[in-house]
Amino acid sequence: MEIEARANPMDKYLRADRIPHIWCSGCGLGIVLNAFLHAIEELNIDLDKLAVVSGIGCTGRIAGYINTDSYHTTHGRAIPFATGLKLANPEMKVVVISGDGDLFAIGGNHFIHAARRNIDITVIGVNNYNYGMTGGQLGPTTPLGARTTTSPYGNIEHPFNLCHVAHAAGAVYVARWTVLHAIRLKNSIKEALNKRGFSFIEVIAACPTTYGRRNKMPDALDEMRFYREHSVIKHGIDPSQANIEIGKEIVVGKFVDIEKPTFNEAVEELKKKVKKK
């Protein structure tokens, strides 16, 4: 057993000239990207049939690092872009990887309506509890009482429970993992990619630079240890029971897995019906 410098086997899916990436030491986004790449490798997906769309934010950088068709869209508009992409190329697998601020703050409306229409895309929402890139401001997912740059005395706004939002809006696959559950996350991404319909995976990721150090977790390792001690796997529970609160356990697992006709299928059916007349 020895150590030598050799190319990482994942480098074939990466624009390796851009690595090392710009994310901070200990940032969870690298693990999300890693899990996604392992998932597409294990599924043996043709890279010509895969498109990755992301919005703005630290997570938006993911599209720039993957060596496939990838789009870095305007703020909050990753899902409308992906919707168009999927409707024009139904044989393509379209994946949206974006942050909580992009998907649920400025792009919240698009998320709800894509889930309602059951567009056949996979959405991976990385939740780091704050707006990391702009300096750690309070966002729609910041837990009650958490301290951020714009809530120095503690957050007073009730946060979104992203999995509950997705379930209520009509997503057919809803799961939540933390970045510590890297292997389960990879398996979940594989399931979601093969799922027909709107599938959503929430990934809870450490943001040591802007969130962790204001909330008694100054190091990425502290956040990871917190996930190890406080996350509980409960498959199939009602997502409304899986709120994220400070000091409480983080409920993770696969919450929803149902079948429903997708938007593309509904369009095809309508076409047949109209042609008959």
Partner: peptide, 21 residues
């Protein structure tokens, strides 16, 4: 079964996850 570990030193940012977990 044993593993052979390869470390690309210049990419490391010392988060310590591999050591801890």
């Amino acid at each position: 079964v044993h593993g052979k570990v390869y470390i690309i030193k210049d990419r490391c940012k010392q988060c310590g996850f591999c050591i801890e977990f």
